Amino acid sequence: MAGICNGRVVIVTGAGRGLGRAHALAFAAEGAQVVVNDLGVGLDGAGGSAGPAATVADEIRALGGEAVANGDDIATAEGARGLVATALDAFGHLDTLVNNAGFLRDRMLVNLDEDDWDAVIRVHLKGHFLPLKYAAAHWRAETKAGRAADARIVNTSSGAGLLGSVGQGNYSAAKAGIIGLTLVAAAELARYGVRVNAIAPAARTRMTEQAFAATMAAPVDGTFDAMAPENVSPLVVWLGCAASSAVTGRVFEAEAGRITVMEGWRPGPTADRGIRWTAAEAGETALKLLAAAEPPRGAYGAE
Rank of each mutant, 00 (worst) to 15 (best):
A85Q: 12
T156H: 06
R250P: 00
H128I: 05
G65N: 00
G298H: 13
A57V: 01
E66G: 00
M108V: 10
T270C: 09
A217W: 14
R206Q: 08
L181D: 03
R61Y: 04
N37R: 08
R276T: 08
M216V: 12
D221Q: 11
N37F: 09
R206N: 11
W117V: 08
A213F: 15
G31F: 08
L109S: 12
A214Y: 14
G7T: 09
M207P: 03
G127W: 15
E294I: 07
R61N: 02
A148D: 07
L162S: 03
G177Y: 01
T86Y: 00
A32V: 03
I121F: 07
N197Y: 06
I275L: 08
S233D: 01
I74R: 10
L39F: 02
A32G: 07
L132E: 01
G31V: 05
V36E: 01
G18Q: 03
M108S: 15
K144C: 11
S165I: 07
V84C: 05
A246G: 13
F129R: 11
Y192V: 00
A141F: 09
T55D: 08
L43R: 15
A77C: 01
A87E: 01
A29Y: 09
A50V: 13
R21S: 04
E142Y: 06
G7S: 12
K175D: 05
Y134W: 10
R191C: 07
R107T: 02
G264F: 00
K175N: 10
E209S: 10
P267N: 06
G51K: 12
V220S: 15
K126L: 12
K126V: 13
R195C: 09
L19W: 13
R258I: 05
